[in-house]
Amino acid sequence: MSLSWIVLGQLESNESMSTSKKVITREEWERKLRDVKIKKEFMNKLVMNFLVTEGYVEAAEKFRIESGTEPDIDLATITDRMAVKKAVQSGNVQDAIEKVNDLNPEILDTNPQLYFHLQQQKLIELIRLGKVEEALEFAQDELAPRGEENQSFLEELERTVALLAFEDVKNCPYGELLDVSQRLKTASEVNAAILTSQSHEKDPKLPSLLKMLIWAQNQLDEKAIYPRINNLSTAMLEDPAI
């Protein structure tokens, strides 16, 4: 039996394994990519939506000038929103609450969970500063009544108050509440609530679109072998793995 026979046999078996999937060559795929019609202004809008939702107000203003893209929200409201976010991030929770109420009192009125989390954050900040008496008073007067209304609030309140039982709070089991990440979490919750109150989506569109790409490629994998983009940050087209 000659060698070429063996090679041929292998080829055949490879082929039968992949017959269920359509093979799309790189050339064919690139032609399809070129045929997609995309208007530049829509990509600009996507970028503007990102800058605005993430709160990059100066960048959004510059982008409006440089690209002529109109933002989908009044840029002045971003400044207010970012001021609230910044206040929470730097621990000035009372300041943040007042700013939210200046923006729109309905936000906290209609969102008891958010209001509770802000109060909880305020308590955390008091504990961080070692103001034990003030913290206890605040917890009893402001937070305990809310805990009675809602089981999950109560549990969170208990966890927070427990911080007071430890001298070395940083290393206690609830120490993570004192972490920056807790501030960021609360800040992003307020941020989302303000955006929703301005009938704007709370998340930018771009991350969803990127997730959609990952999902769409996985879906297509079941039916075809085609040039994928594995590294989204370079958008490099891989050769189809046949």
């Binding site: 359509k22 799309i24 795929w29 399809k32 990519l33 997609v36 995309i38 990509m43 996507l46 970028v47 679109l209 990127l210 959609m212 790409l213 769409a216 490629q217 879906q219 297509l220 039916k223 075809a224 085609y226 983009i229 989204l232 940050s233 370079t234 958008a235 087209l237």
Partner: peptide
């Protein structure tokens, strides 16, 4: 741009998936 390449890829993926 990278963004445009990704949008094109996404569009073609959904179009081809539908065809298949």
């Amino acid at each position: 741009s990278t963004l445009e390449k990704l949008v094109r890829q996404l569009t073609v993926c959904t179009l081809d998936w539908r065809t298949l």
